[in-house]
Nucleic acid binder design. Sequence first.
DNA 1: ATAATTGCAAAAGCTTTGCACGGAA
DNA 2: TTCCGTGCAAAGCTTTTGCAATTAT
Lengths: 156, 156
Amino acid sequence: MKRENRQNDKAALAVEKLKNIGLRATPQRVAILAFLEGNTSHPSAEQIYEALKSEMPSLSLGTVYNTLDELVQRGELQELAISPTRKHVDPNPDPHYHFLCEGCGRIYDFPGTLHTEEIEEATKGFRVQKYAVYLYGICPACNQEDSDRSSSWCAS
Amino acid sequence: MKRENRQNDKAALAVEKLKNIGLRATPQRVAILAFLEGNTSHPSAEQIYEALKSEMPSLSLGTVYNTLDELVQRGELQELAISPTRKHVDPNPDPHYHFLCEGCGRIYDFPGTLHTEEIEEATKGFRVQKYAVYLYGICPACNQEDSDRSSSWCAS
DNA sequence: ATAATTGCAAAAGCTTTGCACGGAA
DNA sequence: TTCCGTGCAAAGCTTTTGCAATTAT
């Protein structure tokens, strides 16, 4: 019941958002936008498609790509080039940093703002319109696994 | 004459470098490394291939990819994911920022160091091993063109 | 000699595109 | 009713891979 309401809220929000930016509120777009609402997993198009096709079997991957493109162009979400092989999206369009764990592939949000004034003397004449900061390494969960593995390796 | 010597120097440097990192000094690798030496254009694999195939017609694109992979793995150069469609390489492996001009597609180097301590409280438990900072906007040359265009548009 | 490397071509991903049908406004 | 959006399938691009022939050491 609660879950249903949450879903309805997200769907309503999605419809609203789509109308605001001048896009038709099709079931596909609503489903995609509702899925992304408050989602911090930074999914790829494929992952969104996989997540939604059970509740909407007719959905096609092409539509996911098209919808994401529209939403990116209208500034509703940002595209991440943090993975070397796949694009991911972040429903939070505000600038912040991202961390890709090389162990599990998860992408994490980090607060952080780049002060382009710091490099202003170098950027003289350059108009910086946006930026991306990508961090790479090992997340706490995978770090833990590593120590587990080394402990057992030490103990054996 | 001078140009020839410079090329020989670069080739010699390339051979040296390859031996140091335990790779056979094949003509293909030497050509690629010599081409990249001191090159600040951040070429893609395709661009390297195009630039070299006149002087080495037998060179294949696959070899360029293989060589770049080896060099990246051994830390001799870094891969840039700044373009949404293509990977580029930078022969300078030291961390710094990059700027992609949306007007002309050129990639520029910028001095700059990310102080991960700034976000240390958020990164607690995260092991940051490397990072990338990508700036997007309009470079001075394209900016100039823009004002030229608007002036003539105003004047007409 | 021999193990690494090349070139070629095919394959693999991810993403985009074209087009006829269907549905939102 | 009109035009936008969808689904499907094909095509496009960049990158990777397999393998026989070649070559650096």
